[in-house]
Design a protein around this nucleic acid. Structure first.
Lengths: 251, 251
DNA sequence: TGTACATCAGTGAACGCGCGTTCACTGATGTAC
DNA sequence: TGTACATCAGTGAACGCGCGTTCACTGATGTAC
């Protein structure tokens, strides 16, 4: 809380905030130390008291952008819960809706905040994405999801803090209720994440950026329905044509 | 074929070739007029005799990169045909294999040539992707190598020249043989393209870049199988667990 | 066949831009005694 | 309570980088007569 004009008092945070705004407007490349210093009202070399390289700042921006992405996904999950409170549905439909919801949240964020979305993947050391995936529960059907208290200290806290974690939880739930077969559960993260990530980028910077919002929404619905259908088929579950797996309306 | 040292003789092409190599190595941002001029052995302002802006060169690079991408996809399609010649299969399995093949070709190219892959989508005015597309032919003549005549005179020629066209053909075939229902056919391009595009980018610049080649291949297989299963389900087609939809082995 | 001339395709100097990073420095803060 | 001093957090000049683009120019080419 220093009022001095020489010591800023909270320069690091001020720089990060300014950097996030720059990234929001122009993507990760828009984060320029000199310009941020100008914005914050400080000499350009002052930043080096708080970050050893520009990349360190960009990494911080990536982390915050990822946080916003997760928040957007969780917002959609909340809508599912609210809808379920008003008009209860069976666990299977609920699980399907939850998977759809996080996909929609992901894409909605990407399209609403392209700069941040791109920043989230710029040099981001996303925590806890198990690429080798040792945790491939050749599962005993039940158990896993809620308290999967394996070797990791507090996995739940971890899981909720990044998109991969949310996705894993949603897929686990889908497997538990029997909608997604154990065989199809393996690698399902990849399918879902690829689909929504690709959809987002094809619309952001790809040749598909032209469609209007309604067309885009319809296209996304089709992608998500295709995935849902694949999972139903994996377990031989019949799906009713009038199953409402979209909780939208909340926008 | 000028031997003069003053007139280059074929500067435009030389610049494009150098630009493609720069993009191959460093992506679209690696295309710098001054550096290319240096490479080609010409003053940096000479480039402006052939391109009015840097972006014009980058667009040309994008087109060539897209061409290489298509070639990679077609290479995989050829493998399917070869396998089919040796060991004939029914039309349904053939159609499924063809869809898988172009997906594999797409991803293989993206991972083998990340710089070009990114360049292909940098400011590329991909021809013939019908989103809103009033077909406003704003092109200034120059390109149009094969003389792609009227407004849609020869769609087949068009279709083969870009990824979207190959995908459309493959999906049409899949619908014709009854594997993909008419309802699911709508928007199917989006699902497939999103999946392979997202998969590629998550591995290129996303948090998944670490996995080894074998793990990556397995992950891709799972994605493609999920799509195949979705389409089977759309038409109620039963799929045999030992259907071999992967034609690989050719690498 | 030879010459004048228009045109094409280069040159190189210059403008203006903004960036990341380093370095010796100085003003402010807080702590030990 | 007051003072010395270490430490922290700024300053501003400087280095070095490479880029895109413009402009007046000049060397080479080809064509009309």
């Amino acid at each position: 809380m220093a009022v001095s004009s020489y010591h800023h008092g909270n320069l690091r945070e001020a720089l990060v905030v300014a950097a996030v705004e720059a990234a929001r407007a122009s993507g990760p490349d828009g984060v320029a130390l000199r310009e941020l210093a100008r914005t914050v009202g400080v000499s350009h070399s002052a930043a080096y008291r708080h970050f050893s390289h520009r990349d360190e700042l960009v990494a911080e921006v990536a982390a915050r952008a990822m946080g916003e992405l997760v928040a957007a996904m969780e917002k959609r999950l909340d809508l599912v819960e609210q809808a379920g409170a008003v008009d209860p549905v069976d666990p299977v439909l609920r699980a399907r809706r939850r998977l759809i919801a996080i996909g929609e949240g992901y894409v909605a964020f990407a399209l609403a905040e392209p700069g941040l979305f791109r920043s989230a993947f710029a040099a981001s050391p996303l925590p806890g994405v198990p690429v080798g995936v040792p945790a491939s529960v050749d599962d005993d059907g039940a158990g896993a999801a809620v308290a999967d208290g394996g070797d990791r200290a507090d996995p739940a806290a971890d899981l909720d803090s990044d998109p991969y974690g949310l996705l894993t939880e949603a897929l686990d739930e889908l497997a538990e209720v029997g909608y997604l077969s154990a065989a199809a559960r393996v690698g399902a993260e990849m399918t879902c994440w690829s689909a929504v990530h690709g959809f987002s980028l094809l619309h952001l910077e790809g040749p598909l950026g032209t469609g209007d919002a309604a067309a885009r929404q319809e296209a996304l619905d089709q992608v998500l329905v295709a995935i849902d259908r694949s999972y139903a088929a994996s377990s031989g579950t019949a799906i009713e044509p009038d199953d409402d797996i979209f909780t939208r309306r909340g926008r």
